[in-house]
Design a binder for these strands. Sequence first.
DNA 1: TCTAATACATAATTATCTTATGTATTAATC
DNA 2: GATTAATACATAAGATAATTATGTATTAGA
Lengths: 110, 110
Amino acid sequence: MHSSELLKGTLQTILLKVLKDHGKMYGYEITQRVKELSEDRILLTEGALYPSLHKLESEGILKTETVMMGKRVRKYYSLTPEGRSLAKERVNEFVDFIKTMSNVLQLQMG
Amino acid sequence: MHSSELLKGTLQTILLKVLKDHGKMYGYEITQRVKELSEDRILLTEGALYPSLHKLESEGILKTETVMMGKRVRKYYSLTPEGRSLAKERVNEFVDFIKTMSNVLQLQMG
DNA sequence: TCTAATACATAATTATCTTATGTATTAATC
DNA sequence: GATTAATACATAAGATAATTATGTATTAGA
């Protein structure tokens, strides 16, 4: 699972926004949703995903709920109120980033 | 000189496109132009800039011309033919990246 | 029965960037 | 005239976020 150099730094933004839009999700589900939304262009690696989810949880941005599906564990993540506000902030930041880069690269868009 | 986490991975794209648009430029001049184009949002650090320019030169993407301005050295960088084609590629890559991220983050744009 | 997909997790390595440091010239301010 | 800020290059040390590799285990499909 590899992607462009440009994706670096976007992981947190992606996680927060996808969780905001789709509610309660577990790790593997997030990778599949992102793969789908990106038309196979963004393939999240577990080595990046899980540490990032754990960090966000430890910071109070995400909360978890562990569910047993038969004998298999599923850990559902969802945004805390703090997480919801951070999600907005991160998306705004990204939009601003696009605008700035569009100016620097002289792309004809916002 | 610090910026957002999102800038990671954009340096090469920025350097190539700015050099494509503005022709022959020296390092310090590039930092100023990018600062200006980005309205002070992107402040390139020398620690990232110079190693990156050197690498691109060693790869045949950029060529240099050293000029003495009085007693001060100026090293002008410009794109080689290979560099021009890489610049296009990098910009296309970035536009595609924006499109993909817009889908994932559900932004109402391309 | 074996393989692929699902589902979690962490350690080792790599790459890119920031921060820090260094040298030196030129312009501006005190 | 002296000090500071801006110009102009360069590299080394440290931080950080990602990839790659590895590990365990269940479930579905061939």
